[in-house]
Write a protein that binds this DNA or RNA. Structure first.
Lengths: 204, 204
DNA sequence: CGTGAGTTTGACCAGTTGGTCAAATGTATG
DNA sequence: CATACATTTGACCAACTGGTCAAACTCACG
């Protein structure tokens, strides 16, 4: 356990390697299914060496989660309350879908955790996420009140976007099996755009 | 390991208890996170006694999966190709949503398994499920060709139904946190009906 | 090149876990 | 109630796992 000085070159490299390896291993096996040895090997270190950088398996996991949560919620923060409602929502959907494509491990990491009751995430969920969601809901409601998108339950609208986009990463095995020989993401973007356009276009 | 005679009263009772306990424990902790002891205790048996009825942890899990897969796919089989397309699809969505509400443990069991790559399910997925999905897709395509529902990618349509309905069971912790103080399912049914009605109503 | 701090490792430990086994107990049936 | 079979259990084992520790090694820097 190095002192609290500024991290050395080696510390920076190894910590980064460990987190990358941890993402790989945790997302594939869940917290309980992952072993410290697996992570160490994937990071190119011995187990005691890994435990020199992080005090415990739990600490690795926590560090990983908090490092990723911000990134994961970025697309939501990018919604512009002053933009065109339909365009903003469609762009958000597209960003989330792209994220499932580019960062499936991150998506599965969170999925694994939440499916099992999110024992190590409840705090973050009920504070950070809750605030963000409440704000976004207000924006949606504003748009609906102004008649610029159709009126639907704003929280369920948000759930539906998460659910539909993350499905392609979290359940990739299933999607891939059933989409074969096509690419799992083939047509997803168009499908989702059509879906939200039709659902949210204001009724005459 | 009893012979292959017809099962005794005790065998029937204990096997049922074990599968019920296994559902509880596996769905909460995933395969690796569950211990044989946990399951045995939940079933009111000692560990060696449980292993008298099932030869291994793996065998319990496999038995559980195959016992549930049929039930899980029943709503899909109930779609009537000769019924009214919109009504059939809306009814299917409603059945799936009801299933998330009534059988969240089953939903999470499958979710856990699929998120982690479905190592023990791939076979079933690529045979049984594949056949069912192909058939359903043909039905959807027929309805679209006849102009009775709007044309969308039929496989993505199916994915969207699974994703949206199972989300309420699989990510219940998250949904509950964000829906508080409302019930997690509050408004879900209406939201989904609106969504699919708008997406699938044939365009003039 | 010496020295002190940072880094790495082999050996080890205690707790957990899946699974075995022989012996003991219960139960259906003639 | 005797007997064969079904059921249950305590004791046990080997493999695995998270974590520790002292000793060895490496590196930056004066």
């Amino acid at each position: 356990m190095p002192k609290d000085r500024s991290p050395t070159r080696i510390q920076k490299r190894n910590r980064a390697n460990i987190l990358e390896a941890a993402l790989e291993v945790f997302s594939q096996n869940g917290f309980r299914g992952a072993t410290v040895d697996q992570i160490a090997t994937a990071a190119g270190l011995s187990k005691p060496n890994l435990l020199y950088y992080f005090p415990s398996k739990d600490a690795i996991f926590t560090a990983l989660l908090s490092a990723l949560l911000d990134t994961w919620l970025d697309p939501l923060r990018e919604i512009n309350p002053d933009g065109d409602p339909m365009a903003e929502i469609l762009a958000y959907v597209e960003r989330k879908l792209q994220m499932s494509k580019d960062m499936p491990r991150e998506s599965r990491l969170f999925a694994n955790e939440i499916v099992q009751g999110a024992p190590r995430m409840i705090d973050a969920l009920s504070t950070d996420l809750r605030v963000l969601v409440d704000a976004t809901e207000a924006v949606f409601l504003g748009w609906m009140d102004a008649g610029r998108i159709a009126r639907v339950h704003p929280r369920h609208l948000l759930f539906s976007i998460w659910s539909l986009t993350q499905h392609y990463a979290d359940f990739e095995v299933q999607v891939r099996t059933l989409m074969t020989p096509d690419d799992p993401f083939d047509g997803a973007s168009e499908f989702l755009e059509t879906l939200y356009r039709r659902m949210l276009t204001p009724q005459s």
